[in-house]
Simulated scan of single mutants.
Amino acid sequence: LFQVGGAQALAALAYGTRTVPRVDVIAGPGNLYVTAAKRLLYGEVGVDMLAGPSELLILSDGSSSPRFAAADLLSQAEHDQEAWTLLITPERAFADRVIEELEAILAETPRREVASESLRRHGFVVVVKDLQEGMELVNEFAPEHLELHLKEPLSWLERVKNAGVVFLGDQTPVALGDYYAGPNHILPTARAARYSSPLGVWTFLKRINFLYYDRGALAEAAKRVVPLARVEGLEAHAEAVKVRVEDG
Rank of each mutant, 00 (worst) to 15 (best):
G28D: 06
V125K: 01
F167L: 15
A83I: 02
E117H: 06
Y195M: 07
G200H: 00
S75N: 15
M49S: 14
A14L: 05
W202M: 07
P173I: 07
L57H: 00
A7Y: 00
F124L: 12
Y212K: 14
L40E: 14
I99E: 15
L56E: 00
R22G: 01
V23F: 04
T85D: 04
K161G: 04
Y179W: 14
S196D: 09
Q3L: 12
I58E: 01
I58V: 15
V127E: 14
T203D: 13
Y212G: 09
G182H: 09
G28I: 07
G169L: 11
P198W: 07
E108M: 10
S197Q: 13
R120Y: 05
D170W: 10
A192Q: 14
R224C: 04
Q8T: 14
L148N: 06
G6D: 06
E220A: 14
L102D: 07
L234S: 03
Y42W: 13
V160W: 03
Y15G: 01
G216T: 15
V225N: 03
R39E: 05
W156P: 14
A229L: 07
L150P: 13
D214R: 11
V166Y: 06
L187F: 08
E133T: 15
G30R: 05
K242F: 02
E55N: 03
E158M: 12
H149S: 03
F124K: 15
F167P: 07
T109C: 10
K206E: 13
L187K: 10
A27M: 04
R112C: 06
P227C: 12
W84P: 04
V45E: 00
G134N: 06
E55K: 01
A217M: 14
P153A: 10
L56G: 00
V25H: 15
G52I: 05
A27D: 08
A77N: 10
K129D: 13
A181Q: 10
E108Q: 11
H145L: 10
D247P: 02
A192L: 08
L176P: 03
S118G: 08
F2R: 09
F124T: 13
L59T: 11
I58Q: 00
V25E: 04
A190K: 11
F68G: 01
H145F: 06
Q132V: 12
A163Y: 01
I26S: 04
P66M: 05
L10A: 03
L106R: 03
V166D: 03
G62T: 01
D178K: 14
L157M: 08
A36Q: 14
R120N: 04
W84G: 04
